[in-house]
Write a protein that binds this DNA or RNA. Structure first.
Length: 185
DNA sequence: TCGCCGATGTTCT
DNA sequence: GAACATCGGCGAT
């Protein structure tokens, strides 16, 4: 497996969110196929970047190909890939993976045996992969232990409204691998 | 299997 | 003081 180059991420969030479906996310010895994503950008009232750059969203306004990690609901972290032209505040939320390697480690971290419960949600996969707030701003290209490997086949992708937001609910900016049993519910 | 609800702390008003 | 890009447990079906 080889890492996608920085240029792969230098596209708008709605396009990258679809291009990431079927790619593999690798964190050390742990990996999974991306099966569900959501797009966010600065013109979007549901996005953390909507109100402009703050301490929390600083990395969203930097160059593409870096990790934006945020803490929410007092106990969960979620993982995004910053994308688009620098300064646009665009990112793609990774919502679900099909677990591929490191299954035993994932089960221990999640305290959960069933494959479908390991990475079927944005905070679940962060826990399963061992991603923490220390990974905020971490580079995803030109590395060998934190990267995204391109897909080899063209997936069938479906789309619909994003989950868990109260604004801009009409946008169909959530994308998932058709018929995958590993998407969030 | 589905839907409601509480946990828990950071961010922004 | 309210909202929040969530999750797991619980009770009802």
């Amino acid at each position: 497996m080889h890492a996608a180059p920085q240029t792969f991420f230098a596209k708008d969030a709605v396009t990258l969110a679809q291009d990431l479906i079927g790619c593999t996310l690798i964190v050390g010895e742990i990996s999974g196929i991306i099966v569900e994503t959501e797009a966010y950008n600065q013109d979007d009232a549901a996005s953390h970047s909507y109100k402009g750059e703050t301490a929390r969203t600083k990395v969203m306004f930097g160059p593409a190909g870096y990790a934006y990690i945020y803490f929410t609901y007092g106990m969960h972290y979620c993982f995004n890939v910053v994308c688009g032209p620098e300064g646009r505040g665009e990112a793609v939320l990774i919502r679900a993976l099909e677990p591929k390697t490191g299954l035993d480690t994932m089960r221990q971290r999640r305290n959960q045996q069933h494959l479908r419960q390991l990475c079927s949600g944005p905070a679940k996969l962060v826990q399963a992969l061992g991603i923490t707030k220390a990974d905020y701003g971490r580079q995803l290209f030109d590395t060998d232990d934190f990267y995204i490997a391109p897909r080899t086949d063209e997936p069938t992708i479906e789309s619909g409204p994003r989950i868990g937001i109260s604004r801009e609910t009409h946008k169909a900016w959530r994308f998932w691998l058709s018929a995958s049993e590993f998407v969030s519910k």
